[in-house]
Design a protein around this nucleic acid. Sequence first.
DNA 1: TAATTATAATACGGCCCGTCTCGTATGCCA
DNA 2: TGGCATACGAGACGGGCCGTATTATAATTA
Lengths: 201, 201
Amino acid sequence: MVHEVKAKRAPGRPRSDATRQGVLDAAIDLMSTHAYRDITIEGIAATARVGKQSIYRWWPSKADLLLEAYTERSIYKLPPQILSGDVFADLEVDLVRYFTVLRQEMVSKGVRSLVAEAQLDETFRAKFYEAVWRKRCEAVHRILHHGVALRQIRADVDVEAVAHLIHGASLYRLLSGTSRPFDEDDARTVVSLLRDGLKAR
Amino acid sequence: MVHEVKAKRAPGRPRSDATRQGVLDAAIDLMSTHAYRDITIEGIAATARVGKQSIYRWWPSKADLLLEAYTERSIYKLPPQILSGDVFADLEVDLVRYFTVLRQEMVSKGVRSLVAEAQLDETFRAKFYEAVWRKRCEAVHRILHHGVALRQIRADVDVEAVAHLIHGASLYRLLSGTSRPFDEDDARTVVSLLRDGLKAR
DNA sequence: TAATTATAATACGGCCCGTCTCGTATGCCA
DNA sequence: TGGCATACGAGACGGGCCGTATTATAATTA
């Protein structure tokens, strides 16, 4: 193609990236020092030295803003994993990496807050799923399908159900807030449970 | 004992049970018609035709009030289960019963709201765990330990981890809000997965 | 009867919401 | 260069709900 599709510039003053970054920074900043409950749009605006309207113009809600800050600042992000020939080892590696991220104070706090918001707002729930959980599910699916192809996993396995078990367990621990967070040992335990099953032999 | 321990009556006008019930009723009532977000203490007081102070006197927060309403009105309650000789059948029965309760509109809505609150308030999180999740965990623990005693389950199994897998899966589905809620088939799937494991044989 | 506590009703200051209005800044296009 | 469209920081505004305080009355004990 000779003619590239040019981004059609809207008329008027363009959005200021400095303002945008400032708002996201302020949000992350406040999250590290305050409870989610105590963070307000006005507070973020004041911290970022930005007009309130500039926030309302670009983000529909506090939750959307924070979700964007989290995704953008790549606090909750994992590079794709190279699969070995051993499915269960791969699964364990994936879980260890995931749990390591989840153990960071800021991450667990953020996930907690955004999960809460997702329960109270159906629209945001869908966005949150897309931005956070979908990728995790896909990662596990990928590993499991690979395992099926290698004939290391039973062909009739319900991949979706397994993914829900895995993520559910870590989610449960995070949200119930009674046990310690997941670590490497837990990853091993979960994988070996799923691999061998409960049945006495 | 001849002398019973008499409840030491406090002086002054006693707490009105009619008022208490009215408040709890109003709360449940509003929950069935409004989003949790839109329910306010003032609204509950007005609906119950009760002074605002009477609510603040007895409940520390909206969440505590609703948790009490849910527990008291036994919307989220399961009678104890009689264990058969087949552990995996018992497990499946337990899950089917649990999922059936969770599928009720009011229950899932309530759990969602209270989980959200629990994420935003550490004190309430502990209360919520005690009132809701603890019992579920104990039910599963009981079944699993029984299975170990019957030698139908491997003796070295991490009962805690299994309970987290089971509850986590249903919690994940409920909270992520993308898939359909759990049903009998899912209970079967989960149990057979846990029983036999993933490994190809 | 006096003391004590609960109750319904309502008033109060305060915080934050989300919208609106300024005056100004920054880009496009003719 | 000037006109137009939009973004920007700042802040005013009405409104809702918060949690507390006040008041007059009711219920119970000593």
